[in-house]
Write a protein that binds this DNA or RNA. Structure first.
Length: 922
RNA sequence: GGGCGGUUAGCUCAGUGGUAGAGCAUUCGCUUCACACGCGAGAGGUCGUAGGUUCAAGUCCUAUACCGCCCA
């Protein structure tokens, strides 16, 4: 379809639009890259370069963080594809268990329905239809972003293949003894009705109360030993849980309480007595120094309870309500926070509340529902991740995996070193149902290692049993941790894709999911595939709002990427993302960066438009037999062999410099240097530096200087200049393509190419293109032009006014030899001599003079020159100071010393001339 | 409590040892035949503070202040 599509384009219109219009260009390419995806070939001989997308959650649509992620990924992928790699950008999405279920439940609630009203099957149907909707929106956004993903390989974490991978992971971990079922204290989300892992909880400090309660000692003797006080005071922030108290704990070395250890005290509002125990976990400085131990409702208490063999009755149910026979009737059935108030009131009434004071309490909130989590004791599935973490740490030691910015390696390590068992079961419906079955006696049945795919209730060996499958599903990260290899065919280890594209080269993601996702992928990959899942982890910063705050739905400060795309264009947005991404720093939103991208796109568009116009004007006068002319004329890409390839053309051009002007030689030399620079930055994954280099070269050098300098030579007689114009522009398009794929593809086509730019080769660096002489000479010409412009400005002339100037200095001869360029660009006329008083501008190697006519106010000019003189004096003194220091001369490298000497000379010469110029006004 | 990042021009940010940069804003002048989403000429920083290392420090080290983030 390539050729057919190409017909309906700007390439065939006679002229490009005056301004770049993203809306007129982007949809066509976006559609093309989606409909004809960049397929990666597992059988190719090219070296692989793989990046798997951090799969977006199907909870809605993409935010700016995703747009940033995918821009960076696509830029690297497009670069590597051009550079000769078998580049695979593997797209897909995450079912995002709890997040998605919460979203759909919220929708249902708005309709007055609960998931239980629907039942599991009907509810899942709802979620799948939401997945289709959300997934479609995400896909559309990625499509608009122009990512060159291999859409034939799109994956979803609940695909058949990926679900199979999850099951294999679990079965294997179970038989290795790493996955187990046990009763532990877990974090319960009373709204979502599921457990949560540590990572799914946000800590927040809230204002609360700390209550000091009186627990009456059981016998009089104890009371006596307590200085007559018949009580022990404890501090708590959760008085409503006292009914589940199992002990009072004090620090073993706390003299205040030593005599009470072993005594018993009564729980207020009840008739039950609990022992006073000693445990080192008690903080002596907290409250009054004694704690009530409630194993079922606090993680620390749970641990203390385990050490002392305490029972762990629960008094709060899964809905967060007080329950159990232990709770007095008055409070039974109350919601936990209401219960707290009621219990406090009762304690005041009974006189057991000694004190209540303000206290900042750290509480855990469910990341998804924002509800305070309730620690509860429950039978759940866990993974002992210690051994897996150890494998990753070993790999990090061996340097098998690089993280950039490097500082995150330590963060990664610290987390792995202090890792705790991972609760992987969730009481949700949306997700991978756990492949574990139970019989009536509570025995566990898990598929065999030999045949993990066979359900236990279909396994003939268990036919005599009545098995019930665990209704729970896995934590969503228990599937996304397999993403880099499950998407490539694992557990089928002979999968062609897996063999070719795994391990992947880079993982690009925000540092905020280093623990959630990156570390878990590391562990799964090392354990299940015996290797690191990626060579490099490239972490970028978070995309913050203009005030520097995290964007969030609740704050309503989010910015929709589509709005930015609409306002500035996708290329401009991608430019901004690349430009802003430096060193993993957080990114504060700044519309000015998007404007810069838009302006840059327009600048490039107009440069191309200009070049194209000039070339088509002269094309009829050219001889098609000449290869350069043929290249210039080409309205369509020449058939293979008829036209030299562009890099050969460049070599051809510089081989015969007679056809080139100084400006041509200079820009080709600069192009080569910039190509080397950009390539180096891209290889180092420093996209910000790369785009900056391209931007500066395109705007400041190609447009501002080269195009202006080339204007006088744009005639049919100068095939060298015409070819240089086109060649350098095409190279710019190639260098820029990974960053701004739409406009570059469009312009490349408009310059007569049929094959889309994305599949062309990356420009090579060629030392033969370096031209020191031209670089130095053109720098002098630039100085002459700038000086001439400065003089015109001082004289208050309009740019179009012609001014006669006289040029002196070392570079005078060079300037005269290139008079046409200097006269054209600066709009001056070079003359040999001038009458009367003159006003001058001095720059490196040149002094440009113009006659002062009439009543020009030169006070301003004189002031500037004097200031300049002072500056020069300072610079010279500084350089001379260094040169006269024995230490400097003895220790500094020779080239640095040479540089300082050169400065003294250069500045000295300028100073002399300035003094001379000013002398005539003394 | 532990760890990390930031502090550079009015604003937002680049810049890891050798003459301080960009975009925007600002001053002056321009409908110069690619571009006013533009062109030219300017102005504007003792690089948070205090020490130190070095021939040489925005850049390396130490301390410190303030802002932000992560973990407990």
């Amino acid at each position: 379809m390539t050729d057919q599509t190409a017909t309906d384009t700007a390439a065939d219109a006679n002229e490009l639009a005056k301004a770049f219009d993203p809306a007129a260009t982007e949809p066509r390419w976006a559609r093309r890259w989606f409909e004809e995806p960049f397929r990666a070939d597992a059988t190719s001989a090219r070296p692989p370069f793989t990046i798997v997308i951090p799969p977006p959650n199907v909870t809605g649509s993409l935010h700016l963080g995703h747009a940033l992620d995918n821009t960076l990924i696509d830029t690297l992928i497009r670069y590597k594809r051009m550079a000769g790699f078998e580049a695979l950008y593997l797209p897909g999405m995450d079912h995002a268990g709890i997040s998605t279920q919460v979203v759909v439940e919220k929708q249902l609630r708005a309709e007055g329905v609960s998931r239980h009203d629907l039942g599991r099957e009907a509810f899942l149907e709802k979620v799948w239809s939401w997945k289709a909707e959300s997934g479609g929106a995400i896909l559309e956004q990625l499509r608009r972003l122009g990512v060159s993903a291999d859409w034939t390989r799109e994956r979803f974490t609940m695909d058949e293949g990926l679900s199979r991978a999850v099951r294999h992971q679990f079965v294997r971990l179970y038989h290795e003894g790493l996955a187990y079922r046990g009763e532990r204290i877990v974090n319960w989300d009373v709204e979502a009705q599921t457990t949560l892992s540590e990572l799914e909880i946000d800590r927040e400090v809230r204002k609360g109360k700390m209550s000091t309660l009186s627990y009456k000692l059981e016998d009089a003797q104890a009371a006596a030993s307590n200085g007559g006080a018949g009580e022990i005071l404890i501090a708590t922030v959760r008085p409503e849980t006292i009914f589940a108290d199992q002990a009072i704990a004090v620090h073993p070395e706390d003299e205040r309480f030593a005599h009470l250890i072993g005594q018993r005290a009564r729980i207020p509002l009840t008739d039950r007595f609990i022992p006073v125990i000693a445990d080192v976990a008690v903080e002596r400085d907290f409250g009054v120094g004694a704690l009530k131990i409630t194993p079922a409702h606090d993680p620390t208490d749970f641990e203390i309870g385990e050490r002392h063999n305490l029972a762990r009755p629960s008094v709060i149910d899964l809905n967060g309500k007080l329950t159990s026979d232990l709770v007095p009737d008055a409070f039974r059935g109350l919601e936990r926070f209401a219960a707290r108030k009621a219990v406090v009131a009762a304690l005041i009434e009974s006189g057991d509340l000694i004190e209540e004071k303000d206290h900042d309490t750290a509480i855990g909130l469910s990341e998804r529902t924002k509800v305070p989590v309730e620690p509860i004791v429950s039978l759940q599935w866990f993974v002992n991740v210690g051994p897996m973490a150890a494998q990753v740490l070993e790999g990090l030691d061996k340097g098998e995996l690089r993280i950039t910015p490097e500082r995150y390696t330590k963060v990664n390590r610290d987390w792995l070193e202090n890792i705790r068992d991972w609760n992987i079961s969730r009481q949700l419906w949306w997700g991978h149902q756990i492949p574990a079955w139970y019989d009536g006696d509570g025995h566990i049945y898990v598929p065999s290692a030999e045949n993990p795919d066979l359900d236990c209730d279909k396994d003939p060996q268990y036919a005599h049993l009545s098995l019930r499958r665990d209704p729970d599903v896995f934590d969503t990260w228990f599937s996304s941790n397999l993403w880099p290899f499950s998407t490539l065919g694992w557990p089928d280890e002979s999968s062609e894709d897996l063999l070719k594209f795994y391990p992947t080269q880079v993982l690009v993601t925000g540092y905020d999911i280093l623990f959630f996702w990156v570390a878990r992928m590391q562990m799964a990959a090392y354990h299940l595939t015996n290797r690191a899942p990626f060579e490099t982890v490239m972490l970028h910063g978070l995309y913050l709002d203009a005030k520097g705050q995290k964007m969030s739905k609740s704050k309503g400060n989010g910015i929709d990427p589509l709005e930015l795309f609409g306002e500035y264009g996708v290329d401009a947005s991608r430019f901004a993302f690349a430009f802003l991404s430096t060193g993993g720093q957080d990114i504060k939103h700044d519309p000015r960066r998007f404007e810069q991208g838009r302006n840059f796109a327009n600048k490039l568009w107009n440069a191309a438009r200009f070049v194209r116009m000039r070339l088509s004007e002269v094309a009829p006068d050219l001889d098609p037999a000449d290869p350069l002319s043929a290249y210039i004329q080409a309205a369509a890409e020449m058939p293979q062999g008829a036209s030299p390839r562009s890099r050969d053309l460049l070599s051809h051009l510089v081989a015969d410099k007679s056809k080139l002007t100084l400006a041509d030689r200079w820009i080709i030399s600069r192009l080569n240097a910039v190509t080397a620079e950009v390539t180096g930055h891209l290889d180092a994954y420093d996209l910000g530096a790369a785009i900056r280099a391209i931007y500066a070269f395109t705007w400041d050098e190609y447009c501002d200087w080269y195009l202006e300098a080339a204007k006088p030579a744009m005639s049919a007689a100068n095939t060298g200049t015409l070819a240089t114009l086109k060649l350098v522009l095409e190279h710019i398009l190639k260098l820029l393509h990974p960053f701004m794929p739409f406009i570059t593809s469009e312009l490349y086509e408009a310059l007569g190419h049929r094959r889309q730019l994305a599949v062309h080769a990356w420009p090579e660096v060629n030392v033969a293109l370096h031209d020191q002489e031209a670089s130095e000479a053109f720098t002098r010409l630039r100085a002459a032009v700038s000086a001439a412009r400065s003089v015109k400005n001082e004289l208050g002339l309009s740019p179009q006014d012609r001014l006669s100037v006289q040029v002196d200095g070392e570079a005078a001869e060079l300037v005269r030899a290139n008079a046409r360029v200097v006269e054209g660009v600066a709009r001056v006329t070079l003359v040999d001599s001038l009458e009367g008083r003159t006003l001058s501008a001095v720059d490196a190697g040149v002094i440009v003079r113009a006659a002062i006519e009439g009543t020009v106010d030169i006070a301003d000019w004189l002031g500037k020159q004097r200031k300049r003189l002072l500056e020069l004096g300072k610079q010279i003194a500084q350089a001379q100071g260094k040169l006269s220091s024995e230490n400097f001369v003895a220790r500094a490298p020779a080239e640095v010393i040479e540089e300082e000497k050169r400065r003294v000379e250069d500045f000295g010469a300028q100073k002399t001339r300035l003094e001379e110029v000013l002398g005539q006004f003394e």
